[in-house]
Each structure stands twice: as C-alpha cells, then as structure tokens.
Design a protein around this nucleic acid. Structure first.
Length: 205
DNA sequence: CAAGAGATCATCT
DNA sequence: GATGATCTCTTGA
C-alpha cells in the first residue's frame, strides 16, 4: 500500500488535481454488523477532481479572505477540508501547495472497487458526485483539519503504479461557479475520459 | 432532453 | 437576511 505522502500535495494545485486521477481513496471504518470489532476497508478510484487555486480564484472560498470555515485552506498541504453546503451536503477537499497559499482539490467522483453484488458495502451507494461520494463514504465535518497522508483517521489516498496517459485526462470548466467572473471559464476540472463514474454534468467543456 | 423548483441550514455580510 | 464548489424530482417541448 503506497500511501501518498504529504509532499505529494505540496505542489501546484493544478498538478495535484490531475495526478490524483486514477489514485485510490481508501476508507476504513467500524462495521459491527459483521461482528464485534470488525472493520470494513473500502477502496475507490478517483476519476474526477476540481482545483481551487489561490486567493484570486473567485470560485474559491478563499477569494474573500480567511474565515473560520476556510482557514484550513490557508494551512499546510495534505490536510482534509470538508465543508457543509446547500443545507445538506458535505464536500471533500485536500489542501495543496505551501502554507498561507489557500488552495485545494475537490474530489468530485470516485469509482467503487468493490463488487456491486457485495450487499451492505459502500459499493451499494452512488459515488459519482461530490455530495454523493461523501454520503457513500460517510465523510462529514469531523474530518475537517485532519491529515490525509496517514491512516490513523480511516481515510487516506494510495498512489497508482501505472501511468495515466495525458490523452485520458479531460480538462473542463468547473461546475456550479457561474458567479466567479473570468474564473468560471478556467478549465480546472479534470476527469478520466474512459470512466463511467464521472459526475453527471461532465460534458461541458 | 433541457430547464426549473424545492430541499434545508451553516456560514458569511 | 442571502446564498451556495449539490442533488433529485417535476414539467414541458
């Protein structure tokens, strides 16, 4: 298991967002239904990401300065940023770049590695959208501020040992950021061309 | 298929 | 007091 180290995230956001495609988001959590003390280990391939890149990016929470909500974006890289929105949804981000440069990668869609036939597993849930995947993986605000580069908190990312050809990476406009001026047209959303698990609004380029 | 509305509330102004 | 890094359902062409 090659867990991605903190240094992986301490690079330009646009680079990290693309390099995360094809890597594996892993979730480990107690699953008492299988017996006392049992845990489940679920693995998902990351197939879609978005970059939120610095203080000038008007689509980013960080564009209006530091607040209580977005302060982890200003911290060191490899830290989980989870926020709550639309009164019901959690969004999973990983902070990137150096300290005091507010940037993060939003994980928008993952592909379950588990058999859909495995009833009771996370594979039974839809994970092709940023809110759907946090629901499927049981990720909420309690993860906000925790490091993703250690296994301790039951959520980490493992690298891939194969190369993802550049031709397989699609660059597209980010979703739901029409208010962001010229930044709404930045091609800062990335997804794996061949994946059937990309979020639904994947066609706009 | 596309467009619009409703859900629902923490966070920000 | 307004809004949103979303999703699902309904309506209508």
């Amino acid at each position: 298991m090659n867990i991605l180290p903190q240094a992986f995230y301490n690079r330009p956001t646009l680079q990290v967002a693309q390099d995360l495609l094809g890597c594996f988001l892993v979730r480990k959590y107690p699953f008492p239904y299988e017996g006392e003390g049992r845990v489940r280990l679920e693995k998902f391939k990351i197939v879609e990401t978005e970059a939120y890149n610095g203080p000038n990016d008007r689509a980013s929470h960080a564009s209006r300065g530091r607040t209580k909500r977005n302060e982890v974006m200003f911290g060191s890289s490899g830290i989980i940023y989870v926020y709550f929105t639309y009164g019901m949804h959690y969004m999973l981000n990983i902070v990137t770049g150096p300290k005091d440069f507010p940037a993060a990668v939003l994980i928008r869609a993952v592909e379950p590695m588990k058999s859909p036939l495995d009833k009771g597993g996370l594979g039974d849930f839809q994970s092709n959208g940023p809110a759907k995947l946090t629901k499927a993986l049981r990720i909420d605000k309690s993860f906000n501020g925790l490091p993703i580069y250690i296994k301790k908190h039951g959520l980490w990312i493992e690298g891939r040992d194969w190369k993802l050809p550049k031709s397989q990476i699609v660059k597209a406009k980010r979703i739901g950021v029409d208010y962001a001026g010229i930044y709404k047209d930045k091609l800062w959303r990335f997804y794996i061309k061949a994946s059937k698990f990309v979020s639904k609004k994947n066609r706009a380029i």
